[in-house]
């Protein structure tokens, strides 16, 4: 009996600590975002972070987008030719990239490339007591360290997603039109006839804005809440990638249901 009671207690404790953790992350985010803006001083910090979060991620985004678009073109062509409708290849590539693959794969890559780096960086700052010493000097680490990184991720993510989508569609074009010989006019024409700017492209961008928010939030918070040891930093980095991947995939379903599922 008492064993069962202990198990239930354990469950209750872990549930409570889970809620506590979410609450802490929420308070942390509010403290980071809700403050008097100091544009003149924050802007250079933001630019620096945009460079390391955004510009340095461009290469991996472009390369993976190109290959994903090319694979889509190849697979789609093989299936569509069985129904003699290979001229719909453009629609297939554009719709799947703009609606789903662009935001989701971009967010997963972003979590792996930039999110983990953010966590490790902030975690190491905490482990080496840089954050504490900043506070000692009267500089708020939330403003100096966390806020620029958060905003940089939030801004960079949609930009990366747009680049990803455009490059992936170009990859599909390369394989479909230039290599496999689908008519270029039908490729673009059918695509334009069925891809709507607001319903497809803007919704994809909205998705990536939400993903950018969530992924950077998780990365920054995990770094800030690291147990300040070498092992702790490693765990926090792993947690960032795992949590943000799960959050992206789960949220993607919810967002699709809300925006495109007619729910």
């Amino acid at each position: 009996m008492s064993v069962l009671l202990k198990k239930i207690q354990l469950l209750g404790r872990s549930g409570l600590s889970y809620c506590q953790e979410i609450g802490k992350a929420g308070i942390f985010l509010t403290n980071t975002l809700v403050r008097k803006p100091r544009f003149g001083k924050s802007f250079p910090l933001l630019i620096e972070q945009l460079f390391s979060v955004g510009v340095l991620s461009v290469i991996i985004i472009i390369v993976s987008a190109l290959f994903i678009g090319m694979v889509l073109g190849l697979q789609g062509y093989n299936t569509l030719t069985q129904y003699a409708s290979s001229q719909q290849l453009g629609v297939l590539v554009a719709k799947s990239v703009v609606r789903e693959l662009g935001p989701v794969i971009c967010a997963l890559l972003f979590a792996g490339r930039a999110g983990s780096a953010l966590t490790a960086e902030i975690g190491l700052m905490k482990a080496t007591e840089q954050l504490d010493s900043m506070e000692m000097m009267g500089v708020d680490p939330l403003w100096r360290v966390i806020a620029p990184r958060f905003w940089a991720g939030f801004i960079a993510m949609p930009v990366l997603e747009i680049i990803f989508s455009a490059v992936a569609i170009f990859g599909g074009y390369l394989v479909g039109v230039e290599w496999l010989g689908v008519d270029g006019g039908s490729f673009w024409g059918n695509m334009q006839a069925s891809v709507a700017f607001h319903e497809d492209i803007v919704n994809g961008i909205i998705k990536s804005i939400v993903f950018g928010f969530v992924v950077t939030w998780i990365a920054v918070y995990q770094g800030y809440a690291t147990v300040p040891t070498a092992e702790g930093i490693g765990r926090a980095t792993t947690r960032t990638v795992v949590y943000s991947s799960l959050a992206v995939l789960g949220l993607d379903f919810v967002l699709t249901a809300v925006m495109m599922g007619g729910w």
């Binding site: 680049i163 989508s165 700017f197 492209i201």
Partner: peptide, 16 residues
């Protein structure tokens, strides 16, 4: 690059 890609998506893909 982001702005250019958005223009490409708007004009070339969705045919604005």
């Amino acid at each position: 690059a982001g702005i250019v890609a958005l223009l490409v998506l708007a004009l070339k893909v969705s045919g604005l």
